[in-house]
Every structure is written in C-alpha cells, then in structure tokens.
Design a binder for these strands. Structure first.
Lengths: 360, 360
DNA sequence: GGCAGTATTGCATTCGTATGCAATTTGGCG
DNA sequence: CGCCAAATTGCATACGAATGCAATACTGCC
C-alpha cells in the first residue's frame, strides 16, 4: 500500500544522492524520517505539530528516527501549505538614531518568544521605502511593524494583501492601520511648561529631518504650547537627529537670533547633546546656568554624567510589547478593527535644564 | 490541451474564493496570471526570472495581466523549489553595545543591495544561542553571519546542513568557518605603546563580560604588550561593556589599587566614557591631565566633545562589506575554502589621553 | 519556397509539508 | 466477549513556482 510511494521516493532520493557526490547527502525530509521509522509521512508531520493526534509509541519512533537523521521540519514548505510564514517584517530607518536599536532588539525578542521570526528592513532614510513593500509581499510576511512612513499607495498595496500593519511612533490618517506611539505632544508640553515655570522666556527649537513624523509632532507640540503660554520669542532651526547637526544647529540658532536664548528644545537627545557641547565649547556657556537644553527619547548617552539631559523617556518596553501583541493579535484575528495606543513619556529632570524643584 | 489544467485550477480557485467570502479574493498566483494572459504557468514563471527565455510579446502580455491582478511571485514557493531561500541569518548579541547597531544596519543594506533578505536574531547575551540554530535551520537560511559564539556542537550542526557561516569579530578553532575581524591585539598594542611612550607607567585595565571573545582579545592584547614593555603595575577589573559598569569599574580599580593609575584601558568606548565620568565626578580628576583613559570601537558618543575618547575605530564599512561578500561567495560556490580576514583598526588620538604628538 | 537552426512555449513533474477523509486500531464497559 | 465511540494512522492531494524535455514557432539563407 505504501510501498509504491516509498519506492518512488527512494529511487528519486537515491538518484539525487548519487549526483551530489561531493557534498554528501541532502537534508532529511519527512519522507526520509517516515521511511526509517516505518510510518507514513503524515505521521511524521503530525508528530512535529502541537495539536495533532499521535500516540506515544508513534511519537517515540518518529523522534528517534528524526534525531538519527538530523531532521528538521522545513519552515518554508510549511509556510507554503499553511499560508503562514511566521515571519513579520520590521521596517526601521537609520538605526544610528541611537533610539531605534533598543526598539529593534526588544521587538525581535518579543517576537522570538512567540515563535515568530523577524525579517529586517533597514532604510537609509525614512523615505526609502521603494522596494521594501515589494520584498515584504514576496516573502509573504504575516505582518509588518514599521517605524518609517509608507505612501498611501504603498499602504493600499499592503492592505490589499491583507497584511496587518502596526505603525511605531507614527500614525496615519488611514483608519485601517493600528499604531503604537509615545505621546510626543504631551511630552513636549511638559518640557515647555516646566521651562516656562522656571522663568525661561526666549526659546530655540531644533527640529529633526523634515520627513520624520516624530520630529514634526515634537516641534508642533512644543510650538503650540509655547504659543499657548504667550511666548513669542521663538527661533526654529532644523537638523537631522545627528550629533553634528546638533552642534551646527546651536550655532545657527545663536547667529540667527543675534543672542543666546534662555532655553533650547531639541527634537531628540542626540541633538540636545550636540547643542550642549556647542554651547560649552563654541560659546563658552554654562549649562544649565546660562542656558537650559532639553531633548527627547531618554537614550543611553542622555544619562552620561557630562550631559545628564533633561528629557522625556519613551517607555520602550511597554511600547514594543504592545506593538508585538497588537500585531500578532491582528494576524490571528484579521476581523478585529485596528487600534491606536498612545503611551505617555516619562519625564526625566536632568541637570541640563534649570527647572523648579518638584512641588515647588 | 491546457484546458484540463485550467479547468482544474479554476474550479479549485472558485471554490476557495466562495469560501473566503468575507476577506475577498486570495492573492493571485502564477496560474491566475497565466489564465488571464492566456498562456501557461511556465510562461509566467519565466517572465519573472532573469535569464529565462521569453519573447517581448509574451513579456508584455504577462506583465499586463500580472499588474491587473497585483501578482507577485511567492518567494516562499520559489524557495521551496529552488532550494534557495535568499535569506541569511544575522545573529547579534545585545545591541545596546552601541557598536552593533551600525554593523547591523550596514549588513542589512549590503544584503539588500544584492537582493538577499536578513532574518534577525538578537540575543540577550552572547551565550543565548539555544534555539537560534534550530530556527535558522528550519527556515533554511542560505548563510549565517554571527557576532555571537556558537558551541562546537552547534557549529557542527550548522556545518552538517552545509550552511556557510561567517564569524564577525570572532574566530573559531574550527577551520571550516570564515571570519572577518578587526585586529584587536594590534589596536591594543598601539594604545599601549602610545601611552607608554608618553610616560604612563601604572595601568588599570577594564575588561568586558567574560563570555565575550572580543573583550578577551582586547584584554590579552593590552596585557601582553604591557608585559612586553616591562610594565608590571597593572590592575584588572571587569564590567559588562555598559556605561554604569564603566563607572563602577573605575571606582573599583582605584579602591583595589589604593591609588589612581596613570592610565586606564577600557575594553570599549562606552566603558571608557563611564570611567571618564567617574574619574571626574567621583574622584575629582582631570582627564587627561591627571589620568589618561582610552577605549575601543570608535562609536558615535566617543566623539562627543565632553569625552573625545582616544580609541581605535573599527573599519565597519569595510568589515561589513567583506562579511557580506564572503558569505554570498561561499553560498554561490560552496566548494571554496574558508577565509579569514583581519582589518586593522584606525587609531584616533582623542583628548582623553595624554599622548605625544605624532612624530614626536 | 524550403530547410536547418534557434528561440519560445507548454507539459508534466518536483520541492517538503499539512490536512480532509476514510480506514483502522484502541479503549471502555457492560 | 462484543460492540460502540474515540483516537490514531494512512492515503491522496494541495500549496505556488521552477525546470527538463518535447513540441512548436520563428529566423535567416539559399
């Protein structure tokens, strides 16, 4: 009954083996294991699944054979038949940002725990999403987490393939996508409020690259709150989230204004650090006595003693945990409606800004 | 002639469509495209390959149909039949190291350029390679780049699956693996030589985690050279490559010695920065007047003005480029023998160490 | 126009696993 | 011991694309 099948497989296998004389034998398949264990291929398949029915005896025989052959189920073939690759795409731009590495590691670990693999797409700039969509779709990823922007058209393409997407720190007008974000506006509001409470009246704002949604939200959050509080002496310059432009921006700011503002609000910690260095070295200023400088993110270097940046830390743990859970949930149950979650940042009263004591 | 085939496919397809009433139609396959274009599935397949023969007319018809259906070749299915997934595994430990993010981004981009996808495995610690091997093999990656250590047994497992491996910044006694590394010993030698030339005679050495090969190589490189030069006043303490332990290590060092050494050699830049902060804040020392502190890696923060770390920069560009090329080459031609490449680091004379001027 | 030679195209099979269905075994229990 | 239900197992086929081989369509040339 099964002889025919076996014979077919065997003869083919043999032929293949003979051909590949040098590199030795091919990887073992479920048929090889089945043959050695004297059972059917279906049985092998079932033993290597969770909820499948297989007797203890069967399980043992198959496992023994599998061990002997070094058999491992082929996830590619499995993906083909189950229509689930168990891979998700993580799209991230310019990791040199210092903030994303942590996000990436955590996301990867969260997915690993749940037995999902991460296909990484690293963009040079946020806009470079060109072939990424194409690749994701070709590899039939089950879902996407993106910290970069896709065009509406790209989104439609992804959506038409029924692949759930979770935006990380960015939202989209499209109502179909889920997102996890840190409430940048609220964070900036806190920073502005504290600075103003402590008597700062003239401001410099250092924004990030123009194609970054995060930067825009932070800038607008700060500017709106400043306006709200009746502060009009505000100068804006823009950098690229990097240290060097942070330094350049500070000088540009001073030059543009013709004086030194009471405080500088940088779109992220790295640029804040650049500003601090330039204030000290380039302009002989003392931080925070002569000027207050604040950032955003709460990255590692912001805590270095030489800077001790006053900032708002993103709750990365909770955000990545949420992002992973939301994505997996939507993969499991595509009928669920999208969800948007916003987390508050954690205020860090560092030494780079002259603030009132808490409760003062 | 093709009617039978078509009919079979069509009936099946229809049935599937009807069942999945809610989510609409399934993703288009090459059969769907073939049907619409009035050609065979093979033709479609050929149009979507590089070196396949297809007439201009054919190409156009198929492409038109494919566009209309939003067809994309299924990389999973392709991988199954071609025995090539076009995915490589990149294994990296604890990205918070600040050095690896850049490596990761660059590797990913190099592979992307060559149309190869990256499956990311992020380890909490270097040792956590447990299930990683299993996963890599199940997904049939074409190759592996690892910045973590695998046990000899794990290596044998990978090797028996004929998957080429390139070690990044670590070598293995096993002769079968290729590797790309920065010559840590030479770098440390340079640092030690310069420090000794400039008159430093007592040393502290801050090593990294014990399971890190990189740390061991750096420590041994420094210690050997110190011995070589007849310096015996050397104290060693160990951290974990992180900022906080850098600070702790400095204090521990001073306490252990009962005095402040002329120079501290840290296993990486981040710990060097920690040492600098602790020297300044915790011990009121001036860097480099009272003490010289050097690191290794050449990461971003090492160039911040407040630290300006004297260090050895790894040539990341060339190293990642090499790693990617070597891996792809070995994938293409498995018969090639492994190769080990070592790159010299780039000496950076920062302000954190009192060295003689060049040529002095 | 005819013929050899080449470029296209289609057919049939293959990759390795999952799974519906039917057949078989096992177990429980009177 | 027998009988029914439940658990286990095997068979056959599907997933979606690639490819050797054979059939067919072009091409150029005399």
């Amino acid at each position: 009954m099964k002889a025919g099948n076996m014979a077919r497989r065997m003869s083919k296998t043999r032929k293949t083996k003979d051909k590949g004389s040098k590199s030795g034998k091919k990887r073992a398949t479920s048929y090889d294991v089945a043959e050695l264990a004297g059972v059917s291929q279906s049985a092998v398949s079932r033993v290597f699944q969770d909820g499948a029915s297989a007797s203890k005896a069967m399980r043992e025989r198959v496992m023994a054979a599998a061990d002997k052959l070094g058999y491992r189920p082929n996830a590619i073939a499995r993906g083909l038949i189950t229509q689930r690759s168990n891979m998700v795409a993580v799209v991230i731009s310019k990791l040199t940002n210092l903030y994303y590495p942590e996000v990436l590691v955590q996301l990867t670990q969260r997915f690993s725990e749940r037995n999902v693999r991460v296909l990484l797409f690293a963009l040079e700039r946020e806009g470079d999403t060109g072939s990424v969509v194409e690749q994701m779709l070709q590899y039939r990823v089950d879902g996407v987490i993106t910290a970069a922007m896709f065009s509406p058209e790209q989104l439609r393409t992804i959506e038409s393939a029924h692949i759930p997407v979770v935006f990380y720190n960015r939202t989209s007008r499209e109502p179909l996508v889920s997102s996890v974000r840190c409430d940048q506006e609220a964070g900036e509001r806190w920073l502005v409020d504290e600075l103003v409470r402590a008597g700062h009246r003239s401001f410099g704002v250092v924004e990030g690259p123009e194609d970054s949604v995060v930067s825009i939200e932070r800038k607008m959050g700060a500017l709106n709150e400043l306006t709200q509080l009746g502060i009009t002496d505000v100068t804006t310059v823009s950098g690229d989230f990097g240290y060097e432009t942070g330094r350049a921006c500070f000088s540009e700011l001073v030059e543009k204004r013709g004086n030194v503002p009471d405080a500088v609000i940088a779109a992220n910690d790295v640029m804040a650090i650049g500003c601090i260095d330039e204030a000290r070295e380039g302009h002989g200023l003392h931080v925070p006595d002569d000027i207050s400088i604040v950032g955003f993110d709460g990255v590692g270097p912001a805590r270095y003693a030489a800077y001790d940046v006053t900032t708002v830390r993103q709750p990365v743990q909770r955000m990545t945990e949420s992002a992973a859970s939301m994505l997996l949930e939507r993969i499991e149950r595509p009928e669920l409606s999208p969800e948007k979650r916003a987390f508050s940042g954690i205020p860090i009263r560092g030494g780079s800004a002259r603030l009132l004591k808490t409760g003062e």
